[in-house]
């Protein structure tokens, strides 16, 4: 399953909760304010590093750009909406709103 998270990890426990449930190997997509989790140099970086050992983690390009985020945690894969569609074709979705 593709787990999608749209909240900042500093405002909501959603990403943490999602990581606790998503089995190793499940892809995780960060979009909307969820992309703040992908920023390097934050207090969440270490947690995201750990998560990247278990999951492919994607962040939506247009949401990153809108927020001025370009320095990202290493290993995060930046994707377009077209790639998002491909991910949903490959995996059914668990929206962790």
């Amino acid at each position: 399953m593709l787990y999608t998270v749209n909240k900042s990890p500093f405002a909501s426990p959603n990403l943490e909760r999602c990581l606790q449930v998503a089995p190793a190997g499940s892809p995780i997509l960060l979009y909307e304010d969820g992309v703040y989790a992908a920023a390097a140099g934050t207090a969440f970086e270490e947690r995201l590093h750990a998560a990247l050992q278990a999951h492919p983690i994607y962040a939506l390009q247009s949401d990153l750009e809108a927020r001025g985020l370009s320095n990202l945690v290493e290993g995060v894969r930046v994707i377009t909406y077209e790639d998002f569609v491909d991910l949903v074709i490959e995996h059914n979705v668990v929206p962790w709103l």
Binding site: N6, Y31, E32, D33, S62, D63, T80, Y81, E82, F84, V85, D86, I89, L97
Partner: peptide, 26 residues
């Protein structure tokens, strides 16, 4: 779509996603 426009980004995201689905020929 569970949200109105202009309060949260969700409706915009839904629109962009729908466009991408169609552009990819689905």
């Amino acid at each position: 779509v569970l949200e109105s426009p202009y309060q949260r980004q969700a409706a915009d995201s839904a629109y962009r996603f729908a466009r991408a689905v169609l552009e990819k020929g689905h």
